[in-house]
């Protein structure tokens, strides 16, 4: 579904991503992990078209993302921090988004999270008046709203209360069962463990490990994700599966 070819990004002479070759398939739920500054956010932003790659390219469903914005119809995105126009009301935000997506018809919206996260209860509140956690809930509901085939979630659980967190995780698992692709960036490995079946571990802009949890388990001999990661950091770079 998503494939990168020699993807590099240089920020003012500092190479953040260097020659990334990745392939992510439908049905995978990928934990995109790595230390701070490893290039996780940059990678997801490149896929979203918010950051322009220095070299290399990204294909979504076999089409280069530079060919136009239509590929983003397949993408649902939940940013790390969501800030909306402060005076806009929640229901107006959804109305705006619906207007931006004329390709998704009335009645085709995925309102599951909208309902379970009780967005309706705050629909007349101005977005500026919402707390950080409430904004995250809006953001999460929005990410799934248009039934995207690919979900890119940047620290989705940070700021969510435990209940909402569980709702979100259940939704992610459901998406994976529906053969969608979910890429989640997080430092909370316990959460990732529950929802992910694949791991991409970035280190200094390179793929340190990419493969299924099973492979990682096999390689490290650990059972818990956090243990596996620690082990990954200690060991020599593993040859990634897709390189």
């Amino acid at each position: 579904m998503i494939e990168t070819f020699q993807l590099s990004k240089v920020y003012s002479r500092q190479e953040v991503l260097s020659g990334l070759n990745l392939r992510c398939e439908a049905g995978q739920s990928i934990a995109l992990i790595g230390p701070n500054g490893a290039g996780k956010t940059t990678l997801s932003k490149i896929i979203l078209g918010q950051v322009i790659a220095s070299s290399g390219r990204v294909e979504v469903n076999g089409i280069d993302i530079n060919r136009g914005p239509d590929y983003r119809r397949e993408l649902g995105y939940m940013p790390q921090v969501s800030r909306f126009p402060v005076r806009m009301k929640t229901h107006q935000l959804f109305k705006l988004m619906r207007r931006l997506r004329p390709d998704v018809g009335e009645g085709e919206y995925d309102t599951e999270l909208y309902e379970e996260l009780e967005i309706d209860g705050m629909k007349n509140k101005a977005l500026g008046a919402l707390s950080g956690g409430m904004r995250q809930r809006v953001s999460a509901a929005l990410a799934f709203y248009f039934n995207p085939r690919v979900l890119i979630l940047d620290e989705p659980t940070a700021g969510l209360d435990p209940l909402a967190n569980e709702v979100l995780k259940a939704k992610i698992r459901k998406c994976v069962r529906e053969q969608r692709l979910v890429i989640t960036t997080s430092h909370i490995l316990n959460d990732l463990e529950e929802i992910c079946n694949h791991v991409i571990y970035l280190l200094e802009g390179k793929v340190h490990f990419a493969g299924s949890i099973d492979e990682l388990q096999e390689r490290t001999g650990e059972t818990r994700l956090n243990r596996m990661v620690v082990s990954l950091i200690k060991n020599k770079p593993a040859r990634a599966q897709y390189q």
């Binding site: 136009g68 914005p69 983003r72 969501s82 800030r83 390709d103």
Partner: peptide, 16 residues
């Protein structure tokens, strides 16, 4: 002040 919002919009199928 609208950078985040622009970011959100940029993630939609909208041309730059």
């Amino acid at each position: 002040n609208s950078q985040e919002f622009i970011l959100l919009l940029a993630a939609q199928p909208v041309r730059r």
